[in-house]
């Protein structure tokens, strides 16, 4: 961000150094050491000034990065009436996703659990009637039995009609229960955008902090230690195809376990 400016500064600095060095050489050659020392002093001033200027520039950059980051995690600057930061808003949104997927899953399971006995009931009655119908076809049925079958079929047909309505309505409701996908998709996209923005600001911040450290001579001796515990739960693997340390199917799990003697 400030690189184009520093290019100009750099040229100015190089020009001054060139000028002062030329004067220094001239003074030395002319034997004017008082003037030569003055030029050495000037050179030293140029170095100090450029250093101060660079630190000032970096500090401003760092300040801007911090400000951007704060705006991202807190919406209060943009809207003083907002009682929530963007981050808190994002977690509320994700809670909403959990809640609506949970509701949809339960609603779907309710309807499936309600439908299964209806289907089972029809299935067993149809099987029963089918046995009797076979008897009729083979002309093994008594007249009294036929009268009963006659009534049973009437009852069964009415039942099929009612049950079909129930099943059809349950299936439509199962379909409707999937509407969370659209809504949660939109919410998740917003949160992804926010996270990406925060990540970019954070990267800027780290870069600026690194530059300030380097130019001001602060050494960061703290080493980054990799303490990741492989057994720590990670949740669903979303990039399984690109990773070597994970299995991608139940078959691979079975192979791995059988290689261990399972």
């Amino acid at each position: 961000m400030a690189d184009s400016k520093s290019g100009g500064h750099l040229e100015d600095i190089q020009d001054s150094i060139r000028e002062h060095t030329k004067s220094l050489v001239e003074s030395v050659e002319a034997g004017d050491f008082t003037s030569a020392i003055q030029h050495v002093q000037n050179l030293s001033d140029v170095r100090d000034q450029s250093l101060y200027r660079e630190i000032g520039r970096l500090t401003r950059g760092l300040h801007d990065s911090i400000k951007n980051f704060e705006i991202a995690i807190s919406d209060k600057d943009a809207d003083p009436d907002a009682d929530e930061s963007k981050m808190a808003d994002a977690s509320d949104r994700l809670d909403y996703v959990i809640q609506s997927t949970n509701n949809a899953a339960n609603k779907t399971m309710d309807l499936v659990e309600e439908t299964i006995p209806v289907v089972d009931d029809l299935k067993s009655e149809a099987a029963e009637l089918s046995v009797e119908w076979g008897k009729l076809l083979r002309r093994e049925m008594e007249v009294s039995e036929f009268r009963q079958l006659y009534k049973k079929i009437d009852v069964f047909l009415k039942k099929v009609d009612g049950s079909s309505n129930t099943m059809s309505s349950n299936l439509s409701n199962i379909l409707l229960a999937q509407d969370y996908q659209d809504l949660t998709g939109q919410v998740i996209q917003k949160v992804i955008k926010l996270v990406k923005g925060v990540e970019n600001d954070l990267v800027d911040l780290v870069k600026m902090a690194g530059l300030v450290e380097r130019i001001s001579g602060i050494e960061n001796t703290q080493e980054v230690t990799d303490t990741a515990d492989v057994l720590l739960a990670e949740g669903p693997i979303v990039d399984a195809e690109e990773r070597e340390d994970v299995v991608t199917s139940q078959d691979e799990v079975d192979d791995l376990l059988s290689s261990l003697g399972f």
């Binding site: 492989v230 057994l231 739960a233 990670e234 949740g235 669903p236 693997i237 399984a240 340390d245 994970v246 299995v247 991608t248 199917s249 139940q250 799990v253 791995l256 376990l257 261990l260 399972f262």
Partner: peptide, 23 residues
């Protein structure tokens, strides 16, 4: 479980699991 790292499956086996199904 959704945990699918080989090391985790091996650890579960070593801990005495009887079966492992990935979600």
């Amino acid at each position: 479980t959704a945990e699918a790292k080989r090391e985790q499956i091996v650890a579960a086996a070593q801990a005495g699991v009887n079966g492992y199904v990935v979600k």
